[in-house]
Computed example of a mutant assay.
Amino acid sequence: MRYIIIGAGAVGGAIGGRLFAAGHEVVLVARGAHLAALRDGGLRLAVPDGSLTLPIPAVGGPEAVELRPGDVLVLSVKTQDSTALLESWAGRPVAGGGTAGEELPLVCAQNAVENERLALRRFRHVYGMCVWLPATHLEPGRVAAFGSPLTGILHVGRYPSGTDRTAERISADLEASAFLAPVVPDVMRWKYAKLLANLPNALEAVCEPVEGEESRGLYRRVIAEGRAVLDAAGIAYTPPEEERRVRGDRIRLLDVEGAERGGGSSWQSLARGTGSIEADHLNGEITLLARLHGIAAPVNETLQRVANAFARERRAPGSMSASDLLDLVGRRARH
Score class of each variant (00 low, 15 high):
V74C: 08
V74H: 05
L75W: 06
L75Y: 05
L75D: 07
L75E: 09
S76I: 05
S76G: 04
S76Y: 02
V77F: 10
V77W: 09
V77C: 05
K78Q: 12
K78M: 06
K78R: 13
K78I: 07
T79H: 04
T79L: 05
T79Q: 12
Q80C: 12
Q80T: 12
Q80M: 13
Q80H: 15
D81V: 04
D81N: 15
D81C: 11
S82V: 15
S82G: 00
S82E: 13
T83Y: 11
T83R: 14
A84M: 05
A84H: 05
A84Y: 03
A84V: 13
L85T: 14
L85E: 11
L85N: 13
L86G: 07
E87R: 13
S88M: 02
S88L: 02
W89C: 00
W89E: 00
W89H: 01
W89Y: 15
W89F: 15
A90S: 10
A90N: 01
G91T: 10
R92K: 13
P93L: 07
P93C: 06
P93G: 08
V94R: 01
V94F: 03
V94W: 02
A95W: 02
A95I: 08
G96N: 09
G96T: 10
G96I: 10
G96V: 11
G96R: 09
G97T: 00
G97N: 03
G97W: 00
G97C: 01
G97H: 00
G97L: 01
T99L: 03
T99M: 02
T99D: 04
A100S: 01
A100M: 01
G101F: 06
E102Y: 01
E102D: 08
E103Y: 00
E103F: 00
L104I: 06
L104M: 05
L104A: 08
L104C: 09
P105G: 05
L106A: 04
L106G: 02
V107K: 09
V107W: 13
C108G: 13
C108Y: 11
C108D: 09
C108F: 11
A109E: 08
A109F: 06
A109I: 10
Q110W: 03
Q110I: 06
N111K: 02
A112G: 12
V113A: 10
V113T: 14
V113Y: 06
V113H: 05
E114N: 11
E114T: 14
E114W: 14
N115A: 11
N115K: 05
N115Y: 05
E116T: 07
E116V: 03
E116F: 01
R117M: 09
L118F: 08
L118M: 11
A119I: 12
A119Y: 09
A119D: 06
L120A: 12
L120C: 06
R121L: 10
R121W: 02
R122F: 03
R122M: 07
R122K: 11
F123N: 04
F123E: 09
F123C: 09
F123M: 04
